[in-house]
Design a protein around this nucleic acid. Structure first.
Lengths: 185, 185
DNA sequence: CTATTCTAGTTAGCTTCCTAACTATAAGCC
DNA sequence: GGCTTATAGTTAGGAAGCTAACTAGAATAG
């Protein structure tokens, strides 16, 4: 399910030309932005296409990945609400993801004994095996995609993208900071 | 509709640690890849959130953008199939997009007089006005997102992403070149 | 000229996300 | 303790993309 974006990146001269009609158009910003959209889509599809061969969607992969990390790092159980938070989706969406993962026996729901509203979610042995089967190929494909970039270039890329991510949070915090987010301020 | 991705980027030390368990994991490649996924999503959402205030989806915007360019550049009419090709979606999806755009009087379908299978799609005056209302704000937001990067950094970013895009086409061409794509080879 | 094949556009049904409303349980106020 | 509020999870219905199958018209083979 690729994103609906123009597949064709305009040449820089076209952006310069368009800037005459639109004074707000910053050609260098637009060029970087459009490259980012395309490359981000390509990166996403790289994973999506690969996972599809293992009967997994990106959303299911994200959940399995989080559960895999959890089993290693922290002993505290994973709840649907916590997973939704970390994945950036609603609790309703997480319910659906866990439904299908549980149907395929990749995860298991367990009721919390202390708080009967809560559930905890665990990776089953089958789920663990599934991830062990998927991850090496996934990492190989990531390495292949990044192969033309030197280690220095990768570092540079990550830093430049990090600045954009930081700016994004600045902009959204400025535009509409959640009241809850101000609790620490 | 953000993509379902882990919102949290792992620290580099965690990638180094994970590489011990997974020999195929290249930490610098993964770091760049994960940053790219997050930043691409942020960039996409920047547009999506803004368009939503104008009752437009990214898909509809892409179609309107192509039609706007067409009116300037080439006199040849835009067909649904051509638009689908340029947007990278199926013809079926394009039918749906044009349906809603036509319902909102932003575009107009016209039957081709020579080939009665074909339609041509045109921007209406209202569609043109809509784009004139949307684009300046869109360009401003793009400029704001890229503001922390210097012109040189933007250029560097575009070049690094260009290498990734090129590599992506190399990989897919190698894996499964469409027979039709070989016609020129 | 007729029959096959190809192409443009549409329709029908699926998936994955969403929001809004609901149920059950826990926590806080009187 | 009993009432209000907040929280965890689920359910129901909607939006936007997909594939597969269909219809109508054009192109090509015989």
């Amino acid at each position: 399910m690729p994103r609906l974006l123009p597949k064709h990146l305009p040449r820089y001269e076209c952006l310069l030309e368009a800037a005459k009609a639109f004074p707000d158009l910053d050609p260098s910003a637009c060029e970087a932005f459009l490259h980012l959209l395309r490359a981000g889509d390509v990166a996403f599809q790289l994973g999506e296409d690969y996972f599809a061969g293992h009967n997994i969607t990106p959303g299911r992969f994200a959940v399995l990945m989080l559960l895999l990390q959890k089993t290693k790092d922290c002993p505290q159980p994973s709840t649907p609400a916590g997973l939704a938070e970390m994945c950036g989706v609603t609790r309703a969406t997480m319910t659906g993801l866990i439904d299908t993962l549980e149907r395929d026996s990749l995860v298991r729901r367990e009721a919390d004994t202390h708080d009967r509203r809560m559930m905890s979610v665990h990776l089953t042995p089958k789920g663990h095996a599934q991830m062990s089967a998927i991850l090496p190929g996934h990492f190989k494909r990531i390495a292949a995609l990044m192969q033309p970039l030197s280690t220095v270039e990768r570092r540079t890329l990550a830093q430049l993208l990090g600045k954009i991510l930081q700016q994004s949070t600045n902009l959204t915090d400025f535009a509409g900071p959640k009241p809850a987010a101000l609790s620490s301020a």
